[in-house]
């Protein structure tokens, strides 16, 4: 189990899970399907299949 922050909210996912899983878990998938994008804490856009790692912070905007 790894801890991930999405829009500063703590969530828990399994190793091997991806940005897509974090979006499903937080109910943010629809927003990204519509127009928003996902970024890491340094402002890099990340793909849906991007791996999540312990403590990673991602943002939907």
């Amino acid at each position: 189990m790894i801890k991930v922050f999405i829009n500063d909210k703590l969530i828990h996912v399994l190793p091997g899970m991806t940005v897509k899983h974090a979006l499903i878990l937080t109910g943010l998938l629809k927003e990204v399907e519509d127009s928003k994008k996902v970024y890491d804490e340094w402002g890099n856009e990340v793909g849906f299949d991007g791996a999540l790692s312990e403590g990673i912070k991602i943002y939907v905007k």
């Binding site: 940005v19 890491d40 890099n44 856009e45 990340v46 793909g47 299949d49 991007g50 791996a51 990673i56």
Partner: peptide
Amino acid sequence: GHSHAKVTKPVKVGDTIIVQAWEH
């Protein structure tokens, strides 16, 4: 690789240049 990050310009951390080219 692995995080599928779209690092549009190389970044420098300490003396190391880091790049990554998104996905697919």
